[in-house]
């Protein structure tokens, strides 16, 4: 018993401790550390099945895919689905809505947490700051279904508080969820409500790393609060802002389609139907789903997103020397 333990101990030392310096053949390494490869197996299998197999599945965008025939048996149609998408009667509306919601998000939802973090950073009372922060994180933990359910409750024409206020002021009750005009603001506001607190964490963390001496010398120089924020706080967190901005622009086409699915209806398709919700309706929801067409539209969107990401990264690199790569 004890000998085998000692032996195991020795091989373990070799495999764990000294393996860093060891140069041996592949096979010897695998034989010595089989456990490492066993550990890797579930993750690798998951990666291949749920990440790489779907990537390979992109080929059905170039086929007239039929589940019964499979990928190997289906007919190849080249770029037919891509051309069909450009000629789709909804093409213009889908692209416009996707871009508009993306731009609104970038314009309003992106700066909101930065402003919140700047204000929170100026709160002197630590207790007050902590309580406010905790409260601001709360919406992040509430599901989209509930957020939209509450929004519907609030804006309900009959018993919602918003319409009660409108009626009290002598206005006419508005069925918000049936009006295309109201969809974008509801989308953006509910997004800010849900995300602002949690998104501000990263900026607050960046601010916490600022050297306090910078502020001390600024005070000696007679800099007031606003000047301190402008000349110290903002420049210090600028790299974080730039990187998140690049990512945000790259994700401009990535609308929160799960939320839209809970918000839209044929009444509001005019402003609410975006590329991803269309993919969902065509590819999954409808009877006799057109898998190939939906896949092609998805690939097209992913390509455009990638181009956005690359361009923004270039621009950011040339302007601020901060970039993703």
């Amino acid at each position: 018993m004890s000998t085998s333990n000692v032996e195991r101990g020795i091989t373990s030392i070799e495999s764990l401790g000294t393996s860093v310096h060891e140069k041996g053949s592949w096979w010897r390494y695998v034989r010595r550390n089989p456990a490492l490869y066993v550990m890797l197996l579930p993750g690798l299998l998951n990666l291949l099945l749920f990440k790489y197999l779907p990537m390979w599945g992109i080929v059905i965008g170039f086929q007239q895919f039929h589940p019964a025939l499979g990928v190997l048996g289906s007919k190849w149609v080249g770029f037919k689905h891509y051309i069909d998408f450009f000629n789709d009667p909804y093409f213009f509306r889908l692209v416009r809505n996707t871009l508009l919601l993306g731009v609104y998000t970038l314009a309003f939802s992106f700066p909101a947490p930065i402003v919140l973090a700047l204000l929170l950073n100026e709160v002197r009372s630590i207790g007050f700051k902590r309580v406010t922060q905790t409260i601001s994180y709360m919406p992040y933990f509430i599901s989209t279904v509930v957020v939209i359910g509450l929004l519907r409750e609030f804006t309900s024409p009959n018993d919602g508080i918003v319409n009660a206020a409108i009626a009290a002021l002598g206005g006419e009750r508005i069925p918000f969820f049936l009006r295309p005009l109201w969809f974008p603001p509801l989308y953006v506001i509910s997004g800010i409500w849900a995300q602002i607190g949690f998104s501000s964490i990263i900026y607050l963390a960046a601010m916490a790393n600022i050297n306090p001496e910078l502020y001390e010398s600024a005070v000696i120089d007679g800099a007031r609060r606003f000047r301190q924020v402008w000349h110290i706080t903002i420049p210090s967190i600028l790299p974080v802002i730039v990187i998140l901005f690049i990512l945000a622009v790259g994700g401009i086409l990535a609308t929160d389609f799960q939320k839209i699915l809970l918000m839209y209806s044929p009444f509001t398709y005019e402003t609410a139907d975006v590329i991803s919700t269309y993919i969902y309706r065509v590819g999954i929801e409808s009877e006799g789903s057109n898998f190939s067409y939906a896949t092609a539209v998805g690939v097209f969107t992913a390509l455009i997103s990638l181009i956005f990401l690359i361009i923004t990264n270039r621009v950011a690199k040339s302007m601020s020397e901060t970039s993703l790569w």
């Binding site: 749920f50 197999l53 898998f291 896949t295």
Partner: peptide, 9 residues
């Protein structure tokens, strides 16, 4: 792979 290929897998 996107939504639809993932769904199909």
């Amino acid at each position: 792979g996107g939504l639809v290929p993932t769904y199909l897998v």
